Simulated scan of single mutants.
Amino acid sequence: MIPAELTATDGGTNASLPRAERAYQQLRAAIQAGQLAPGTRLREVELAESLGLSRTPVREALSRLESEGLVVNEPNRGMMVTQLDASMVSELYVMREVLEGTAAALAARHATDVELSLLRDIVERDLAIADDPVRLAANNRLFHETLHRCAHNRYLLKTLRSLHESMALLGRSTLAVPGRAHASYEEHASLVAALEQRDPALAEQIMRRHIQQAYKVRLSLWIEEQAGS
């Protein structure tokens, strides 16, 4: 079901933007925030009413989101937020492992001391918010986004941003699973130590293992959700 009013979650959408761009940003933010969950049917009339726009910019926004893989046009069901199956989840994590492993190796070579200090601060913040899965998930995203920038490779950064937009389709954070938050903290701390040692091979190995562990938890969540649906 489409909410009566969709609101941007990134601080608001600039009213001076073209209407199609505003519609795109608000719909993308709603998908990422879970307002529009995977499997939600996207009817132009309802979306236009919810966004306070006409159908034309909404149609353009949906076409753009479809090209990015966030929505799909099913022959018998129409436009809907993409639902990931087991193979798609696997493919997503395979790419995460490759790309984030590469980012970790590059960060070990190119990150500044200030950037590494910032990464360390982000990791240690987990200890203060250990009982808040929402804040933990936000801090986790910040850690990974900061690490990506530490690689100092604009093309890798662009690819990772696109990949992480698709991650929004996975649903709730794996950090809410008992024990995963602490394990993730330990993995992040080990990664930062490898970066501080300027050891690209070790940093890549730790990051790949981190993504593999996250995938195991994610797959368990997916199986659990499928069993309950």
Rank of each mutant, 00 (worst) to 15 (best):
F143G: 09
V217A: 05
R218S: 09
A176D: 12
R180I: 04
E196G: 01
R161V: 08
Y185W: 06
L142Q: 12
H210N: 03
N140M: 08
S184D: 13
R149W: 05
L221G: 10
E165S: 04
L160F: 03
A189L: 05
E204K: 08
L221S: 12
M207L: 00
K158H: 14
A176F: 02
G171Y: 01
S220F: 08
Y155K: 00
A193H: 09
R149A: 07
A189V: 06
E145G: 10
Q212W: 06
W222K: 05
G171P: 09
R172P: 15
K216R: 07
F143C: 05
A193R: 11
H152N: 12
N153A: 06
L221V: 15
P200V: 00
H148A: 10
R172T: 15
S166E: 14
S162Q: 12
E196I: 05
A214P: 00
H148S: 12
T159H: 03
Y155S: 08
R149S: 10
E187G: 05
P178E: 05
L202C: 09
T146P: 02
H182W: 13
H152W: 07
H148W: 11
R149G: 06
L156G: 00
P178K: 01
E165P: 05
L160V: 13
L221N: 14
L147Y: 03
R209A: 05
N140Y: 14
Q213S: 08
A193F: 09
R154L: 10
Q197K: 05
A151Y: 04
R198I: 04
R141K: 11
G171Q: 04
Q212I: 01
Y215K: 06
S184N: 08
C150S: 14
M167G: 07
R154Y: 06
Q197F: 06
A203G: 13
R161L: 04
Y155T: 10
S173G: 14
